[in-house]
Write a protein that binds this DNA or RNA. Structure first.
Length: 721
DNA sequence: AAATGCTGTCATATC
DNA sequence: TAGATATGACAGCAT
């Protein structure tokens, strides 16, 4: 029953996301308020979403529902929680977290969307049509209706022609192109998810061979998308103009992702504007990046979000004029910016987009009479918002970076594991950190302060060595280390290393591995048998041993094997000395005593093992340090990568601005040019060519080189159609 | 009972 | 060359 409830809950959430994506508000409050208060709080709670997850509390919460922290149910819970968090994050300028949602929607839209569209005729998918109503009165009802179906959503029709210069360059053989560009917001968003998915999916495929049902789903989904593209008579991906599965070098992926970022940021821009202006969101910003999610806090279970109809009406951003391609018609200009943006983003290759040749292609002379298009009527966002948008994009890029490099679910799982481990063996408890008293250290000090116990063991230990006069001599010589100094004990020495090393690595605080050297503890126990040792396994033995046991048994139980061997062989000095004395002093010590061959062999073994033990501890600590340093290095590199990406975005933006200026100049110059008879040059037959020396020539298009000329010519033909 | 982590030990390589 | 150190591998124990 619990399983059913959880599955139903997750299904409900996914369904909510689906409905939200298509513009139908679904309020899960009525369900969650009674069924799953914590989930409701996760969704609607004002405080928990932006605070660090307290997994202890979460665990308590989970316990309330009978989910053991290590139960597989936890995965379901976190999956649910992740989905809900993603929904929550939709009200801010967030991009990548919606990628997966996009896929979910895309996968299920065939069934859900159609059902929802019946009950809600003005849902999001109608958005594009609604925009066409405004911007393109000629849009046919069929188109509008088509835009409400996913097939039509993916049927780009001739929208590919609007993919921009680069896309066109990559698809010279594209056929008819008309001005009916009804590529909707959903198109772009879904495409975004698609590209990202390709990346992560491939990465995961390389990581694990075993196909999962989810991956199979993804593959099927992807196949379905390509079908949609084929419906649009597109041999390539209809949204990027690229054959994504075939060329995914990393650089191209980044360009694609950046393009997606810009696209989605633009969507955020639009929807945020709408949310701010329409003031229908009742406190919950309904802007999102994946196509107008609207998880309302209203009590109405399902609302028809009429505002979404207008969501993209002010479809512009600051960058919009920059990316406006004059070669495009003014028809359906509202739905175009995304495509234009895409095309512009695809042209992130500076060499290809800023070269003289491409300038003629990109800045193909526009139809002058279409200059009075909607751009003039669209408001331009102020810079601060754009800046904010870019910052958000940068953040999301960083997140996406992580997601791409590690896989989203994997990273999330590791994060959860880390947080769940906070009270596990690898505890964050500072008392377990090397920089603070460890368990052995604490027990050591407590033992040293336990006078009664100490006295008892001291006496017993003295008995152990009393049979050998040399032992007595040796113990006397040791003097201060004879175990009668309550204030000082070599037992309490944690390590032969400088403990400050631990302080230099704060990350070690989170590691409870005790790689300090308690060897002196055990080895010196021969020397200080009066002090109990209660570290690790010995503690258990302590518990198991009865207080009535003979002291010698206790001594043996507290001793290491070498200590017991040494005692059995009547080695006249401590293992501590055997191990830690410099080789010269060690040899002197051996020479001072008359030892049998067996004793000498044992002593050498004890020394070897003791040193190796310390070496092993050092080695393990170094290993940990190396891992920690590597992690830090990875973090630094990721930070650098994000910074470089931001710089790259700025460069692209700058290039875009320059391209716009160039376009304006091109238009200005070209429209003023007259032939010998005073007639203007037809843009379809002439173009301006830039020579290397900076001069500008007007040339017939047929005279330009085939490579340079074909593209604009094609475009021109397309435009004529 | 299996999984996992920690620790000690051995073998071996290197310094 | 001997001794010290480093490290992978393994086993035993505890959780």
């Amino acid at each position: 029953m619990l399983y059913l409830k959880k599955y139903f809950t997750e299904g409900l959430i996914q369904f909510t996301i689906l409905l939200s994506l298509i513009g139908v508000r679904v309020d899960v409050d009525t369900y969650l308020s009674n069924q799953l208060p914590p989930l409701r709080e996760i969704i609607l709670g004002p405080s928990s979403a932006y605070t660090q997850t307290q997994f202890h509390n979460l665990r308590n919460t989970l316990d309330g529902y009978g989910i053991h922290p290590k139960s597989v149910d936890l995965d379901h819970f976190f999956t649910t929680r992740r989905l809900l968090n993603q929904v929550r994050q939709l009200d801010r300028l967030s991009v990548p977290s919606t990628e997966l949602n996009t896929w979910l929607v895309h996968r299920d839209s065939e069934t859900v969307v159609s059902a929802s569209s019946q009950s809600s005729p003005s849902i999001t998918l109608d958005n594009g049509a609604g925009l066409e109503d405004v911007d393109n009165p000629d849009a046919t009802p069929a188109m509008r209706g088509g835009s409400g179906a996913p097939e039509s959503t993916y049927n780009l029709n001739a929208a590919d022609s609007s993919l921009g210069a680069v896309a066109l360059e990559g698809n010279q053989e594209q056929g008819s192109r008309d001005g009916n560009d009804d590529l909707t917001k959903e198109d772009i968003d879904l495409g975004a998810g698609r590209v990202v998915f390709y990346y992560s999916n491939r990465q995961k495929e390389s990581e694990e061979e075993k196909p999962s049902p989810r991956r199979t789903k993804m593959r099927n989904r992807r196949a379905g998308e390509m079908e949609y593209n084929l419906q649009g008579a597109q041999p390539v991906d209809g949204e990027t103009g690229e054959s994504i599965p075939e060329q995914l070098d990393l650089e191209q992926q980044w360009q694609d992702i950046m393009a997606i970022m810009e696209l989605q940021a633009m969507e955020v821009n639009n929807t945020s504007l709408q949310a701010n202006s329409s003031s229908v969101s009742s406190g919950t910003t309904e802007s999102n990046t994946a196509g107008n999610f609207g998880l309302s806090t209203r009590s109405t279970p399902i609302n028809q979000d009429v505002s979404l109809h207008q969501a993209s009406l002010p479809s512009c951003s600051q960058d919009f004029p920059q990316i406006f391609n004059p070669q495009l018609d003014s028809v359906s200009i509202t739905s175009r910016p995304t495509m234009l943006r895409l095309s512009s983003s695809n042209s992130t290759n500076i060499n290809s987009t800023f070269g003289a040749t491409n300038l003629t292609g990109i800045f193909l002379p526009p139809h002058i009479n279409s200059s009075s298009n909607n751009i003039t009527a669209t408001p331009i966002l102020p810079d601060p918002f754009s800046t904010l948008l870019e910052e958000s994009m940068l953040d999301e890029i960083s997140l996406l970076d992580l997601a791409m490099e590690e896989g989203f679910s994997q990273a999330q799982a590791s994060q959860l594991e880390d947080e769940l481990d906070s009270d596990s063996g690898l505890s964050l408890d500072s008392s377990h950190s090397p920089a603070s008293p460890s368990s052995s250290e604490t027990s050591c000090s407590s033992a040293a302060s336990s006078s009664s116990t100490s006295a008892t063991f001291s006496e017993e230990g003295a008995v152990g060595y009393s049979t050998d006069s040399e032992v007595a001599t040796a113990e006397t010589e040791e003097g201060a280390v004879g175990g009668y100094q309550p204030g000082y004990s070599k037992l309490c020495r944690m390590s032969y290393q400088d403990p400050s090393q631990f302080h230099s690595l704060p990350q070690l605080d989170s590691i409870s591995h005790n790689h300090t050297y308690n060897l002196p503890l055990s080895s010196a126990f021969t020397e200080h048998p009066e002090l109990p040792i209660s570290t690790g396994k010995k503690t258990v033995r302590d518990k198991q041993s009865s207080k009535l046991q003979p002291a010698q048994d206790l001594l043996d139980k507290h001793s290491s094997r070498d200590e017991r061997r040494a005692r059995a062989m009547k080695i006249p000095f401590s293992n501590d000395k055997i191990i830690n004395l410099p080789v010269e002093e060690f040899n002197e010590l051996l020479a001072k005593h008359h030892l049998s061959e067996a004793q000498l062999a044992l002593i050498r073994d004890i020394r070897r093992r003791g040193k190796n033990k310390m070496a092993a501890q050092n080695c393990r600590k170094r290993k940990l340090d190396t891992i920690i340093n590597l992690e830090q290095g990875v973090q630094d590199l990721r930070r650098d990568k994000a910074r470089l990406l931001k710089e790259k975005m700025e460069f692209i933006r700058s290039i875009r601005q320059m391209k716009q200026k160039m376009q304006s100049l091109y238009q200005e110059v070209f429209t003023q040019l007259r032939d010998e008879e005073g007639r203007p040059y037809p843009p379809s037959e002439y173009s301006l060519q830039y020579s290397a020396d900076g001069s500008v020539l007007i040339m017939p298009r047929c005279m330009t080189t085939a490579e340079q000329n074909r593209k604009p010519e094609k475009k021109q033909k397309d435009k004529k159609k």
